[in-house]
Amino acid sequence: MSEPEAPRTSPTPDRAPELGTPEGAYRMMRLIREFETLALDWVRAGEIPGGVHPYIGQEAVAVGVCGALAPGDQLTSTHRGHGHVLAKGADPARLLAELAGREGGLNRGRGGSMHAADLSLGVLGANGMVGAGAAIAVGAAWAAARLGRSTVVVAFFGDGALNQGVLLEALNLASVRRAPVVFVCENNGYATTLPATAGIGGSALGRAAAFGVPAVTVDGMDVDAVRQAAGEAVARARAGRGPGFLECLTYRFEGHHTMENRLRLGYRSAEEVALWRARDPLERLRPRVAAADRIDAEVAERLRAAADWALASPRPEPAGAGDWLYADGPLPRPGVPA
C-alpha cells in the first residue's frame, strides 16, 4: 500500500513568520487569539471532538520566544500548544483541520489538539503528558549538538510541570551535557485548579538553580520582554554555553479546558481575572502598531478562508485508524497489499 499524497492547502502558510517587529508580533498574537476563539466556537458546535485547552491571554510567550528562534530551531509543546505551533509558522488551515480530525490536518487528523506536530517547521509535537516534552527537547538538542548543528530547542511547559520528575531529569541531563535547550515555564498561576502558590515548594527558578542552569523571570504579558530574555538564552545555548531557563509570568483568560465553564468551578475570582485582562498583551502592544485595524481585518479574513478549507477536508476513513502509526508506513490491512 503506497502512502497517499499529502492534502494540498489553499491558504498560504507562514513558513517563516516575521515576529521581531511590533507589526509582526501583533499580527501573530492576533492570529493566535482569533484562532483560539474560533476553536472555542467549534467545540461548542461539535466540530472539534472532545475539547481544547485555550491559549487566550498567553500569546506574548509563544510569540516572544519564537521570535528569538531561527527557522531551523525546534520546540516541544504542551496540551495548551496551539499558540506555539502557530508562532513557529504552521498553516492555521491545517491546524484547524487537525483539531477537527480531518485528513487535511497537520497529522492527517490523527493527533488532534494535544498532539499537533510539524517536523518541517521544527515542531516536534505537542504533548498531553505534563512535562514530557522537556525530555524530548533535551534529546533533540543533544543530538543536534553531537551532529555539529547549531540548532537550539525550546521546551515549553506550565507551572504544573515543576513537580514532575521528568522535568528535573531533563534539567539535569541538559546541564551535564551542556545541551542547547531553553526551558520555558509558562507560569499562569494554576495547575488546572491548584494555585501555584499552594503546589510548588520553593520556586521555578530554584528548580533551575539546583542544576546550575541560568534562569530569569520575565513579564509574560510583554512580548518584547519575553523576546529579549529568550534571545539571550537562545544565543547562549547556540554558542555552546549550555541550557537556559525562562519563567514567564502570564495568565490564561479562559478556563483550563473547555468543560470548565459548564462545571462552574469558581476557583478564580472575577476580580483576579479582570486584573489580568487589564494587562492583555495584545492591547499593550496595539498602540505601537499603526496598521492594527488593517491587520485585524486581514487575520479575520485569513481565518475565514482557513475555516472553510478545514471543514471541506474529508474525515479519515474508520478503516484507516491504524495508518501512520509506524515509521515505515501504514499498518497493513488484511487482504490489502503492502
Rank of each mutant, 00 (worst) to 15 (best):
E247V: 08
T250L: 05
R279W: 07
E283R: 13
R288F: 14
L285R: 06
L246A: 11
A229N: 08
V299S: 05
L263Q: 15
V273Q: 10
R284D: 09
A239W: 00
A274P: 04
L285P: 04
H257D: 15
R236D: 11
A225C: 12
L265C: 06
E271F: 06
L246K: 08
P287H: 08
A300V: 05
G255F: 10
A300I: 05
T250D: 06
E260V: 06
V223S: 02
R284W: 11
D224H: 09
G240V: 01
A297G: 12
G266W: 05
A225V: 11
D280M: 05
R286G: 02
D219H: 00
M259G: 07
M221G: 09
H256M: 06
E298C: 01
L282G: 06
P243Y: 01
V226D: 07
V273L: 09
H257Y: 13
L263C: 06
R252D: 12
V299N: 09
G240E: 00
L282N: 05
R252W: 10
E298V: 04
L282Y: 11
R294H: 13
H257I: 01
R288A: 15
L246P: 06
V273I: 15
H256L: 12
R277V: 01
T250Y: 00
Q228F: 04
E298I: 03
V218F: 04
S269D: 11
L263H: 14
R252T: 09
R262G: 15
R277D: 04
G266M: 04
G231S: 05
M259C: 03
R279F: 02
G266C: 06
V289H: 00
V218K: 02
E247W: 03
A297M: 01
V273G: 05
A270V: 10
L265V: 10
E254I: 01
R277A: 08
S269H: 00
L246T: 07
P281M: 04
L249D: 11
A292H: 11
R262A: 15
A237I: 07
T250R: 03
A235Y: 07
R241D: 15
V234K: 00
I295G: 02
F245Q: 03
S269I: 00
A278T: 13
L285Q: 11
R286E: 07
M259V: 04
Q228C: 04
A278M: 08
M259S: 10
H257L: 03
W276M: 10
G255P: 08
E271N: 04
T258K: 08
D219E: 11
F245T: 09
E254Q: 14
G266L: 08
Y267K: 08
A235I: 09
G220T: 03
P287C: 11
Y267V: 07
L275D: 14
P243D: 03
A270I: 00
E260S: 07
